[in-house]
Amino acid sequence: MAYWLFKSEPSTWSWDQQVAKGEAGEEWDGVRNYQARNHMRNMKLGDRGFFYHSQKDKAIVGIVEVCAESHHDSTTDDERWDCVDIKAIRPFETPVTLDQIKADERLSEMVLVKSSRLSVQPVREDEWRMICAMGQTNPD
């Protein structure tokens, strides 16, 4: 299993909206960055991800799962853009902020710290487990 982080502005797509989609999940559409798109092309069913509220909150608020592998993004006719579908698994007991992540030296190499603008990014397993522990949330 691989781990990922999906960033969304809560005013555009929030954790509550993701949860409301239930088991069917929702397309993670609208991504127009080649590196982020390529990450989605590498995702497999069952991969897990952090759901990150960007902009004001800047915090990991939940765990999602890839429920449909890479396919054409339905929001565009441009064949270059793909997306995956994700479904909510569980909220974080305690959201983990970007400031908390940056303050932990063990997470200094995390993509979120080094390249915070990337909307879809990989997360190493050790980072996944540390952040879940910080958020008092089951990593599995």
Rank of each mutant, 00 (worst) to 15 (best):
M1D: 07
Y3W: 04
W4Y: 12
L5I: 14
F6P: 08
F6T: 11
K7V: 01
K7N: 05
S8P: 00
E9Q: 12
P10H: 09
P10G: 08
S11E: 12
S14E: 12
W15L: 14
D16G: 08
Q17H: 13
Q17T: 13
Q18H: 07
V19C: 12
E23K: 15
A24I: 04
G25K: 06
E26H: 12
E27T: 11
E27N: 14
D29R: 14
D29W: 11
G30Q: 06
G30C: 08
V31L: 07
V31G: 10
Y34M: 14
Q35P: 09
N38C: 03
H39W: 13
R41D: 15
R41V: 08
R41K: 15
M43F: 02
M43C: 14
M43R: 00
L45P: 04
G46D: 08
G46K: 05
D47Q: 09
G49R: 05
G49T: 03
G49N: 05
F50M: 07
Y52N: 10
S54V: 01
S54L: 00
Q55G: 07
D57Y: 02
I60H: 03
I60K: 03
G62A: 05
E65Q: 12
C67K: 01
A68E: 15
H72R: 05
D73E: 04
S74G: 08
S74F: 00
T75Q: 13
W81P: 13
I86W: 08
K87W: 01
A88R: 07
P91Y: 00
P91H: 06
F92W: 09
V96H: 09
T97V: 11
L98M: 13
D99T: 14
A103M: 03
A103S: 13
D104Y: 06
E105D: 15
L107Q: 12
L107R: 12
E109S: 15
E109R: 15
V111F: 12
V111R: 14
L112R: 09
L112Q: 13
V113Q: 05
K114E: 08
K114D: 02
R117D: 12
R117W: 15
L118T: 10
S119G: 11
S119R: 01
S119C: 03
Q121I: 01
V123P: 08
D126N: 06
W128V: 04
R129H: 07
R129L: 14
R129W: 00
I131P: 02
I131S: 02
Q136E: 05
T137Q: 00
N138Y: 02
D140Q: 12
